[in-house]
Write a protein that binds this DNA or RNA. Sequence first.
DNA 1: AGATATCACCATCTTGATATGCCAATAGAG
DNA 2: CTCTATTGGCATATCAAGATGGTGATATCT
Lengths: 146, 146
Amino acid sequence: MLSRSSEYALRALIYLTDHQDELPISGQQIAEDLAIPRKYLSKILSDLTRTGLLKATRGKCGGFDFAKPPNKATLLEVVSPFERFDLRRCPFGNAQCGDDDPCLAHEGWKKVVQAEQLFLQKTALSKISQPKRVAGAKKGRRTKRK
Amino acid sequence: MLSRSSEYALRALIYLTDHQDELPISGQQIAEDLAIPRKYLSKILSDLTRTGLLKATRGKCGGFDFAKPPNKATLLEVVSPFERFDLRRCPFGNAQCGDDDPCLAHEGWKKVVQAEQLFLQKTALSKISQPKRVAGAKKGRRTKRK
DNA sequence: AGATATCACCATCTTGATATGCCAATAGAG
DNA sequence: CTCTATTGGCATATCAAGATGGTGATATCT
């Protein structure tokens, strides 16, 4: 239901949300920890930088950081550079199916699509980060990586 | 949200539903009327024959017919040969996200996916065929094609 | 039997998403 | 200044979906 690029983007940003005290983090690092192809993820993070979600700093000790706080970012913002939401095209009936001259499945299908859109649009990135599950565990600033 | 193959399958079957008094109809004919690549549609209809949704008769005046009445066929049956519903894989969090150890987006996303599944599963093919819109118009057995 | 119209199968081409590799630009550390 | 770790951009490779073409099997018609 979502492209692989979208999945990578989501997982990477959730990762960043979970490591907010260590930002910026390099693409290399994220790719390793999440087992995502390095250059491919690089490209994705670049895209998200261009859309204004992330902030990239080059050079040594560089990496990616949030350009806006993750509770201001919606899942839709994360995903939309990688999805083509062709809401125009109706999978049923013929081409000219629109809100005015709908096919019979139109309403039902529209509900499904809108449910997805709404979820992506209304859910903040910060809402889906993984909290450390261990009760009372200190946040535990990770030991310097590698 | 659906593969092109699925769309073609749906449109073709809706077409058949709308022409039930003229069955069987050749793939050629359907492809022409719906502006779908001929051989590609052929392949799709063959697939649907193999899954038991359609019945194919070869030779002159052959074509495709329903193997089961369209009110017994669900949209899911139509579409599933062409979709890979990877419900296992969660687009968020890491691999081991399951119903037992869910990521935070799990419930919300599950709802979305299930809404789609439910719609496809509960909607009968006959429910979405296009009725002739002209009030009181005779069904009008089409003049012999071509 | 012969001609024709159809489905079935197989091989190939095209296209877009996914993935990799190379090099330039940038910035911190010594 | 030099070394090194990073992002950025471009070119290319791989892969699966989409699309096309050829041939054989089957059925109807004359």
